[in-house]
Amino acid sequence: MNFLAGEIPNNIPFEFKQNLVPENELIHKGMFSPDLKEYYYTISDNSFEKFDVFVIKNKNGNWSEPKKAFFNSKYNEHGMSFSPDGNSIYFSSTRPTNIQGVFQTWHIWKSDKVNGEWKEPIFVDIPNLRDKLVSHPTITNSETLYFHTSNLDYSGMDIYHSKKVNGKFENAEKTTISTNSKAGKCTPYVSPKEDYLIFASIGNELDLMISYNDGKGGWINTKKLNDKINNKGQGNPYVTPNNRFLFYTTGGHLEKKWKVKWVNIESEINNN
């Protein structure tokens, strides 16, 4: 792993590349391309009005200067994730779809890499969510897309999924996650094999939770990740392809000094 120059965390999280956050701006999700040569992250202003995705690239152990990602637009982009093979990137955007009946809000878009070139992003239509806010997609080996969705005012936020059949995504269903609370859920990360799911539970602060696939379409044995990870508002989880390192955003909702931290997550994933 060529990004692992320098100190590597064990079970104590620490900040990843703290020099990425401009003055008076906030960092949100951070994640790698599957080959670990590119690191993408979202930056917004303090008022959450403008979101941009940046990328840095690793060449011979050196990171490039940040540039806006190829799919970034004059609208808002956020919540990106790669397909496991690295040939598609899914992201949420407020760009207009120009489709009647699709509300102007966050929706899912995707770009495919063809012959080494990224194509123009296209709208991912999930038929029963055209009037909802849809964000933070994550796609699995079986081409099941997980994401959070809510009403346009952000109420009723929960995790849903949609299966791709004959090239199109079907109507979404709420993901059945067994928990002891009625709290909303957001920013899911699902492993490519769909054996575990990490998400943020919405309370006074966000808490990162992990749940395990029961093999019948449900998610069980849900638990809060340890207190070293959950200490002040967590969200936007992403796990490296070898299931070793969790990256997540931390910082209180009012604090406005957010960081992307990383930590070895192997014991949590295996402790089912």
Rank of each mutant, 00 (worst) to 15 (best):
residue 184 G to P: 01
residue 120 E to V: 14
residue 204 N to M: 09
residue 240 T to P: 04
residue 216 K to T: 15
residue 91 F to L: 03
residue 13 P to C: 09
residue 213 N to V: 02
residue 231 N to I: 12
residue 99 I to R: 10
residue 211 S to R: 00
residue 234 Q to Y: 05
residue 148 H to Y: 15
residue 22 P to M: 14
residue 44 S to E: 05
residue 11 N to E: 10
residue 153 D to C: 10
residue 77 E to T: 08
residue 26 L to F: 03
residue 101 G to V: 09
residue 139 I to P: 00
residue 50 K to T: 11
residue 64 S to G: 14
residue 199 F to K: 00
residue 57 K to Q: 15
residue 266 E to F: 13
residue 225 L to P: 04
residue 207 D to P: 04
residue 220 I to M: 07
residue 272 N to H: 13
residue 232 K to M: 11
residue 224 K to E: 11
residue 121 P to H: 03
residue 162 S to Y: 01
residue 195 D to N: 11
residue 87 N to H: 12
residue 188 P to C: 06
residue 142 S to Q: 15
residue 272 N to F: 11
residue 147 F to Y: 08
residue 46 N to V: 13
residue 243 N to F: 06
residue 97 T to E: 08
residue 231 N to V: 07
residue 233 G to V: 05
residue 25 E to T: 13
residue 105 T to S: 13
residue 106 W to M: 06
residue 48 F to H: 09
residue 122 I to H: 07
residue 155 S to I: 10
residue 182 K to R: 10
residue 206 L to T: 06
residue 256 K to P: 10
residue 108 I to H: 00
residue 18 Q to L: 12
residue 149 T to Y: 05
residue 211 S to Y: 01
residue 244 R to M: 13
residue 186 C to V: 10
residue 205 E to C: 08
residue 34 P to Q: 07
residue 262 W to L: 05
residue 140 T to G: 04
residue 28 H to Q: 07
residue 3 F to Q: 05
residue 127 P to V: 10
residue 40 Y to K: 00
residue 54 F to K: 12
residue 11 N to R: 15
residue 172 A to D: 01
residue 169 F to M: 05
residue 23 E to D: 14
residue 96 P to H: 12
residue 138 T to G: 02
residue 99 I to P: 04
residue 89 I to D: 00
residue 44 S to A: 08
residue 202 I to M: 12
residue 243 N to S: 11
